[in-house]
């Protein structure tokens, strides 16, 4: 079955028809060509598909696109305009928190959601917030450093 949904993705309104069985991840990647959001497992375990939905980090592989009707979605593509990247993204670069890069968009989105609800996360808060984002390259140390770095910068801005 198909139905028409309306949603906002990276501040841009969309209305289109979608198959009931398609996931939000499939729609973002195939329909909207937002391929920065990755699929690493399709079972909500790896976090590569993390996007922010109505302010909360969620795994888009476990959400039907029809469920996203009326929601506000943010993806990695919405985190930068041309060269103007977010402080989280800059922190990932500065700390060397990127290797193969496949987990990176999900990591950035989880970090963004964390810092919005908790601007001063402890080490433990960071580990908990990112425990659903698997990375096989970095061993996580530089990623944790990047979150701290971004939190410091953001704190400094206030």
């Amino acid at each position: 079955m198909k139905r028409t949904i309306s949603l906002t993705v990276n501040n841009r309104p969309y209305t289109f028809e979608v198959d009931d069985r398609k996931t939000l991840l499939e729609v973002l990647r195939k329909r909207l060509s937002l391929t920065g959001t990755k699929e690493g497992c399709g079972e909500g375990e790896c976090g590569a598909c993390t996007v922010i939905m109505d302010g909360q980090a969620v795994t888009s592989c476990l959400i039907l696109a029809v469920e996203a009707d009326g929601t506000d979605i943010e993806t990695i593509e919405g985190q930068s305009i041309d060269e103007d990247i977010s402080d989280v993204q800059q922190a990932f670069i500065d700390e060397g928190a990127v290797q193969c890069g496949f987990c990176t968009p999900g990591m950035v989105m989880s970090t963004e959601a964390l810092l919005r609800r908790n601007p001063n996360p402890s080490d433990e808060d960071i580990r908990v917030a990112l425990a659903g984002n698997l990375c096989r390259c970095t061993g996580y140390y530089t990623i944790i450093d990047a979150v701290k770095n971004a939190a410091n910068k953001r704190g400094g801005k206030k």
Binding site: G36, T37, I76, E77, I85, Q89, V98, G101, T104
Partner: peptide
């Protein structure tokens, strides 16, 4: 800085 970092943090890669 890694030469691929920007492409990867922005989802551009």
């Amino acid at each position: 800085e890694r030469i691929d970092a920007l492409a990867k943090v922005t989802g551009d890669a």
